[in-house]
Design a protein around this nucleic acid. Structure first.
Lengths: 343, 343
DNA sequence: TGTTAGCACTCGAATAAAAAGAGTGCTAAC
DNA sequence: GTTAGCACTCTTTTTATTCGAGTGCTAACA
């Protein structure tokens, strides 16, 4: 059995109506609301076919049809129109970005909040610092004898602070010297590009400050590395989904939200093909039992061809994919632009 | 009508049983479970009295009794025994604090998480930076021409970073000079102690760097001030309450959790008599309609006689006050000790 | 005078039965 | 190929009924 244009229209109608009403949709509804020019009986026949194809299903005998995961998939892949919301979304997001003259991460957070509100979903943002995290500036500050603060600015104006134990005898001048050396030699380089033995050579004449250099490098490396490893993840709008009828059961809600609090879960949800730009995972496609009733949309954004972060949207499988994809898309684009300007 | 010892025992029984079971408790239950040596009929009479006094109430005619807010109040003020849990709590908390060799704020967060888990409540911690926020170290770093990073360390090792637009012509040396001057003159002082006109004098000979000084001072002041104004608040275990039967309704949950996401709400909940150490607000005593079914317990902890932070616990009015108060108490104490060691 | 057993009464909760409705699948006619 | 019609299914809603926990009151008792 193959898909003809009428079947497509009917499937689309089922998906759209279900997204809107959260109720199983019957043949009568479709023939009335979406004027396909055929009677409900005809639609019933077609629906039986669609069900056989696994695209829709009945919760029980005397109920209307509901899209299956495969149905959503088909809708997302072939039926969904994206452009209609684009303009509106773009304006909303761009405004949010421009409204604030802040650090990028703050803007991001604000945008995500807005996105969560508009879509009534939970949003996730993940800064994959490992890729773009080249050293821009490092400075060691003497806080008090024996204690220094290491300030690290990596590309993209991300700042890290870390306290450091140092020998009591170290002076401000020693620290300045070390800072300068490190800056001179490592500025603009990625961690991956360091080579321990070369560094050894460079710093070997800093005998007096040797201890601090070692320690600082150690930390620096761990910071830049760690940033990549367990990436920074922010979540917003976790409560939004509570308005959706599929989460009227408290236990379900609790489980879901608790899952989303675990970084590993989020990490897995957010992984996907970073090349294609946007990934849609529907229900069980997420591969996680905890969120099998949810869908996830992930967009990654790049700077200079490298993925530096991802933004994601988590909602019930019955979510408004068209709007969500559009908005995420626009979001990613806008962020890329914002980043570029910032360089 | 006044309170005799038997009435107290009965009230206590009602409170304890209701805390345990979350079901209205009847006279029969009390006479059986808590052996007061009198029959259920007698208890019924007494309960009628207690109801008249406003300490307990009936959800409906044929149900058992439930403590009223006033009933809880009486229990907390006169009946509650606190010592029993103390030792256990102390060990749990102290272990949590000692487990980690981290910055104070991290330890705090961990302890709060643990507290939330044990009590099945939501915990809040509030760092009242305003009090202790004297300047410890300030340094301006030249990131690139026209752009500087201001690093500020305030007492208690709290770090703030802020980017700064500066004239393109400014050099690293200029910034160092400014940093040094600011440090020399403001180190160890609170914002309140600055006096604009005196500063004017001090810095008036820095004509070349004038613009940066102004800007930096402006920011510095705003940072130190703001830290005091809207205090840093961390929340943990927001989901814990979902296990409680009083929150089986999703809408209630949503409203509650959304309220708790608002800083103003939390701020108001956490305010109270900082002198007495611990404050218990029951139900409507919180003064907030959003949380009228909740109780809040707040403990403040002090360093050198000044309140530097508060830890709070939010749960349903039917919460285990005895345990909660004990644990919070211990928590506050342990934190004070930890702080003192840290100094 | 305080305590207790006994009992009628109340009112929510649980259970059962009945009715209503929505939607389907199938058949036969167009 | 399309459609009207109809019997059938299964959920939801409604209504009625029963059940039971707990009370308040009264009268007897120590």
């Amino acid at each position: 059995m193959e898909m003809d244009s009428r079947k497509q229209k009917i499937l689309e109608a089922v998906v759209l109506d279900y997204i809107e009403t959260a109720e199983p949709v019957g043949s009568r509804t479709i023939s009335k609301k979406y004027n396909l020019g055929v009677s409900s009986a005809t639609i019933r026949n077609e629906m039986a076919d669609l069900e056989e194809m696994g695209l829709i299903e009945q919760p029980h005998t005397s109920a209307g049809r509901v899209p299956s995961n495969a149905g959503y998939r088909y809708y997302v892949d072939y039926l969904m129109s994206q452009s209609d919301i684009q303009e509106e979304a773009k304006q909303l997001i761009q405004q949010a970005v421009k409204d604030k003259q802040q650090q990028v991460s703050d803007v991001l957070r604000d945008s995500m909040k807005m996105l969560a509100e508009v879509t009534n979903c939970t949003t996730v943002m993940m800064l994959d610092d490992s890729k773009g995290s080249t050293l821009q500036l490092l400075q060691l500050l003497l806080v008090e004898p024996g204690k220094a603060l290491m300030v690290i600015i990596t590309e993209g104006d991300k700042i890290e602070n870390r306290f450091l134990e140092i020998p009591e005898s170290m002076t401000k001048e020693d620290l300045d010297l070390v800072s300068m050396m490190i800056n001179q030699n490592l500025r603009g380089l990625k961690v991956d590009d360091w080579q321990r033995n070369i560094l050894e050579n460079i710093f070997q004449n800093l005998t007096r400050q040797r201890q601090v250099v070692d320690c600082a490098l150690e930390m620096l490396s761990s910071i830049l590395n760690v940033q990549g490893k367990d990436k920074k993840i922010y979540l917003d709008g976790g409560l939004n989904m509570l308005s959706q009828p599929e989460f009227k059961d408290v236990n379900k809600v609790k489980n879901l939200l608790q899952s989303l609090e675990q970084q590993e879960v989020l990490s897995q949800l957010m992984e996907g093909d970073t090349e294609t730009g946007i990934t849609v995972k529907i229900g069980s496609e997420t591969g996680l039992d905890e969120v099998k009733d949810c869908s996830v949309i992930v967009a990654s954004y790049k700077v200079k061809g490298e993925t530096v972060g991802k933004v994601g949207l988590i909602g019930p499988t019955r979510m408004d994919y068209a709007t969500a994809v559009s908005m995420l898309n626009t979001m990613a684009q806008t962020l890329e632009e914002a980043y570029q300007e910032n360089e």
